[in-house]
């Protein structure tokens, strides 16, 4: 379980303001218009930005000021950020080296996760040669292989074609059900939110304006903009 308490961050003109939320082993979708602070929130949770106030608890450990690699959080940024000078296998096993896995243990873990994500045939390929869907799954495998206690996904399927996106929605949901760890998934699309979310966080201008199940937030949206977004069922970015 991840617990954010009064999490704030000031960076230039932008501010994350007093964000408090609790996400247990559920699939949580973070939505909001571009520039609302969704990516900043994920980067703060995984330790790439230091909050100016508040705390982050993961299970029973406070991780607010821990270095990113010591938090036990898997992070998949926008555009996947695979290491282009490595093979898919090296990308996936990268984090295991810092968890003191020996070669055999590392290979076993890589094999398991790549089979789960159906990319075991791509392991020897250079990551530069992958298609969008393949790169997405490789990045997902790299984030999951370290057995994180929380997975952060920043627009993980936004850039994929419709067919691959639908397939990935099923895979993501399935993995979350299997691992039972909280997923925090930033997205722009209503259908993603509808199919994936157990819980929704709505971020607006750096503030967490509403949270709950999709049904709850749809029933009582806190303002007109959110009502419009939730009722129209289209991408937030198209409307703001």
């Amino acid at each position: 379980m991840i617990r954010l308490k009064g999490l704030s961050l000031k960076q230039g003109r932008f501010e994350l303001k007093d964000i408090s939320a609790e996400i247990a082993g559920e699939y949580c979708v973070v939505v909001g218009p571009p520039g609302a602070g969704k990516t900043t929130l994920l980067e703060t949770i995984c330790g790439l930005r230091i909050p100016t106030a508040g705390s982050i608890m993961l299970d029973k450990t406070e991780i607010t000021f821990l270095p990113p690699g010591k938090r036990g959080i898997g992070y998949m940024p926008q555009d996947y950020a695979l290491f282009p000078h490595m093979t898919v296998k090296d990308n996936i096993s990268f984090g295991l080296q810092y968890l003191n896995y020996d070669k055999a243990g590392s290979e076993k873990k890589v094999k398991e996760i790549s089979t789960l994500l159906e990319i075991d045939h791509l392991l020897e390929r250079s990551s530069k040669t992958l298609s969008g869907g393949e790169a997405q799954r490789a990045a997902m495998a790299r984030a999951l292989v370290i057995s994180p206690k929380l997975l952060l996904l920043d627009e993980p399927i936004c850039a994929l074609d419709e067919k691959t996106r639908m397939k990935m929605i099923k895979i993501l949901k399935n993995i979350q059900r299997q691992t039972k760890i909280p997923f925090l998934h930033v997205c722009h699309f209503y259908d993603e939110m509808e199919q994936l979310s157990d819980k929704v966080l709505i971020i607006w201008e750096g503030e967490l304006v509403q949270q709950g199940t999709l049904k709850e937030v749809k029933k009582k949206p806190v303002n007109g903009k959110i009502r419009e977004f939730l009722c129209k069922g289209t991408a937030v970015c198209e409307k703001d």
Binding site: Y75, P84, Y98
Partner: peptide, 25 residues
């Protein structure tokens, strides 16, 4: 430089991310 950030989330410190990601690239 997001690649370095990702490497850090996977366990690298700043030196390791620099040596393993940035220098080879």
């Amino acid at each position: 430089f997001r690649l370095e950030d990702v490497a850090k989330t996977l366990g690298c410190n700043s030196w390791q991310a620099f040596v393993r990601i940035t220098l080879p690239l």
